[in-house]
Design a protein around this nucleic acid. Structure first.
Lengths: 242, 242
DNA sequence: CGTGTGTTTGATCGCTTTCAAGTTCAGTGG
DNA sequence: CCACTGAACTTGAAAGCGATCAAACACACG
């Protein structure tokens, strides 16, 4: 639809040319002029594993798109117990619009590259582009679906089913086209055992035991603790309870 | 801001005059003309406790606003285990826009009155009213916050803390202005023990035992199993883990 | 080669589930 | 008015699963 190429709209900012968020993320809702306006105030940021993006109850002063890496959203109890309530991957939008402070804290689970921009820039763009708000709504609804899926896992599945569900989730992130009947799939886990435990509502020991159970059963192979080979995705799925 | 009252926009449909959704729900985003268009295709429906609104994986053919009552969103596992993944109250919007089929099933937890309208009517209105989409985004983000709160409860709290959290949630729905340091608050639970268990990821027996514990500790009174008196909201909160 | 962190494995404990009886209560009919 | 009935709820005893505590192991890094 955007075949018209006049002098003002033909240029896509350099930063954006190869950006996934422009194709599949919220920036896809913007035209070249808006993209240019956004890119003027946006900066590329690199974060090391473990870096904190926003603390709980911290003032939100900006938003970002994930260019690469994995970000975890964490909620904690006063006594220190923690639960990961969401995982975000490229090209997800990061932030909580229309709210002064965050209800979660966000941390880099791997090295992460962000395209971040100030709160006011995005909010100005929202006002002039209903398309952008539509994108945000679509992502919010997708995250809501994912959160509810995970509520079922946390509320009703046992430890083995939770770990199997987690492996399927990550396998699916690595290869979104993954079919249940497909071949072997191998990948590196983007999270430590502690992070997996915090995501599954378990302890590290239990996570470890369930992984060895799956390994002994021949469903997966584990190498150097982070590298996983799923021998039989279909069989892993039967372990996941769904 | 809508003080201008010309012939076309001054009339609010009869159905909508006393409707909470017009004030606090998504219909608040519509002007009188749009409200009139929507009300032409909308119908008031009464549902008995237990009635199913949409089944899992069922085609979504309509949306609705809750006028009164409580609706529960349920997810199930193939073997019959169930988890309630959301509770909705008036004047919440009900439905999953931009998706052919529902990922959850919805059931009336109490007697419910709905204002329901066809999918296409809403989708046409969305196209012409960015305000409406903004309302939907705001509700989706609120539901996402609630879902994440509950993930922490399901993943990290013990049985007593879960039951205490549930009572606080309901107390807060009954009296949204409830302060922790406030007086005694009494209410009827809108759900059976089984439904509470399915919401908390517990069994009915465990829910019952924790309620007894809170009663014996003098934090609450229980009458006829559904009627609860919270003697000391602040103390109940200390039991909730937050 | 030692040190430290992350992971695995083992033994025990405790909470929640499971299984099984009671109890309460609303509704029904004698 | 009261006895019967069935559903929802409570209580009890036992079992099981995941947590906790403790130790061994593996691998990266100095």
């Amino acid at each position: 639809m955007n075949h018209r190429q006049d002098v003002h709209t033909s240029e896509v900012p350099v930063l954006c040319v190869a950006c996934e968020a422009r194709l599949r993320g919220v920036c896809g809702a913007l035209d070249a002029d808006q993209l240019m306006a956004l890119s003027k105030t946006s900066t590329k940021k690199r974060l090391e594993t473990g870096a904190e993006l926003v603390g709980d109850a911290e003032i939100i002063d900006g938003y970002a798109n994930i260019l690469s890496g994995v970000v975890k959203l964490i909620k904690g109890l006063p006594d220190g117990r923690e639960q990961i309530v969401g995982l975000q991957f490229a090209p997800d939008f990061l932030g909580r619009p229309f709210q002064a402070e965050s209800a979660v804290s966000a941390q880099a689970a791997t090295n992460v590259v962000l395209c971040s921009f100030p709160k006011r820039t995005l909010e100005a763009l929202i006002k002039q582009s209903p398309q952008l708000e539509h994108s945000l709504l679509k992502q919010a609804l997708r995250e809501l679906d994912e959160a509810r899926d995970w509520m079922l896992t946390l509320g009703r599945k046992n430890a083995l089913e939770r770990v199997a569900s987690y492996l399927l989730l990550i396998a699916n992130y690595i290869d979104p086209a993954l079919q249940p009947q497909s071949e072997v799939i191998a990948f590196d886990l983007p999270m430590s055992r502690l992070e997996i435990a915090d995501f599954l509502g378990l302890t590290i020991e239990t996570v470890s035991r369930q992984l060895t159970k799956l390994r002994v059963d021949g469903v997966i192979q584990v190498r150097q603790s982070r590298h996983i080979v799923v021998n039989n995705p279909a069989r892993l799925k039967t372990f996941s309870g769904c």
